[in-house]
């Protein structure tokens, strides 16, 4: 059985990885947004996520106590050592795909950090409270766009529904609890993921209803991210993301 420091290290790393990988995906929109204002909105969200990732990587590095820095954790691990949920590594696709990913993830994060605010770990609780303010905005941004596209033109409706359907299979993983989760839940330190599922689904259902979209039918759910087993997309992304640190270790401006 891992000790409490190791458990919290893993937990912090997972939260950091989710924020970090999603922030990289969103930063890929930089200069490619549908119009200038939206380009800024997406990269602004990416910057919120970088800030969150940095805070959780710093805490993870501190808990690990082996002298690794937040940068080491962000840039010097291999694909199988990343523990983000599969949803956040999904490619940007078209704008509707990105919005569907944002909707699923930010609504999940909203309930997750609401709960983590009550963690008995003071750092987790404080970071959760700070993160929650940002997540509320991310959620409003995603929900408003879902409604605009879903209840927009015939083409935007179709693309939004397609995106909602395509990513559905990556949402089940968000509500799993493994040994790390269970041990931390028992001590009042972590979030009871499975208990968030019905809250999340009701919330998503309401947004989709307003957007005149339908909730995908229950189906096969892909899993593996928390164990380091990823889709083919993550490796390619890391290749680009880590290039500089790998080619020029410890490069300075």
């Amino acid at each position: 059985m891992a000790n409490i420091h190791e458990l919290k290290y893993t937990y912090s790393l997972r939260m950091a990885d989710n924020a970090w990988i999603l922030s990289h995906r969103l930063s890929e929109w930089c200069s490619n947004g549908p119009f200038l204002e939206e380009d800024l909105a997406l990269t602004n969200i990416a910057l919120d996520l970088i800030g969150r990732a940095q805070a959780f990587y710093n805490y993870a590095a501190e808990l690990e106590g082996k002298g690794r820095t937040a940068d080491d954790l962000a840039y010097r691990r291999n694909e199988r050592q990343y523990y983000n949920n599969l949803l956040v590594e999904m490619p940007n696709g078209n704008f509707a795909d990105t919005i569907a990913r944002q909707l699923y993830m930010s609504v999940y994060e909203y309930y997750f950090f609401m709960s983590l605010q009550n963690s008995k770990d003071e750092t987790f609780a404080a970071l959760a409270a700070k993160t929650l303010k940002e997540v509320k905005y991310h959620m409003a941004h995603a929900a408003d766009w879902t409604v605009r596209l879903g209840d927009g033109t015939e083409e935007s409706h179709e693309k939004m529904q397609q995106a909602i359907n395509n990513l559905w299979m990556y949402t089940g993983e968000l509500f799993e609890a493994d040994e790390t989760d269970t041990a931390l839940i028992a001590q009042g330190l972590g979030v009871d993921n499975p208990s968030l599922h019905s809250l999340w689904e009701t919330h998503i259902k309401n947004v989709l209803e307003e957007a005149k979209l339908s909730l995908p039918a229950a189906n096969y759910m892909q899993t593996g991210g928390r164990k380091g087993v990823h889709t083919e997309h993550l490796g390619h992304m890391l290749g680009e993301m880590q290039y500089l640190q790998r080619a020029y270790p410890d490069a300075k401006w």
């Binding site: 119009f35 200038l36 204002e37 939206e38 800024l40 909105a41 602004n44 905005y137 409003a140 941004h141 408003d144 605009r148």
Partner: peptide, 15 residues
């Protein structure tokens, strides 16, 4: 630039 009130407010906030 924005297509509705909410988007205008969010874009203004972001910019």
């Amino acid at each position: 630039h924005a297509s509705d009130k909410k988007m205008a407010l969010q874009n203004a906030r972001d910019i």
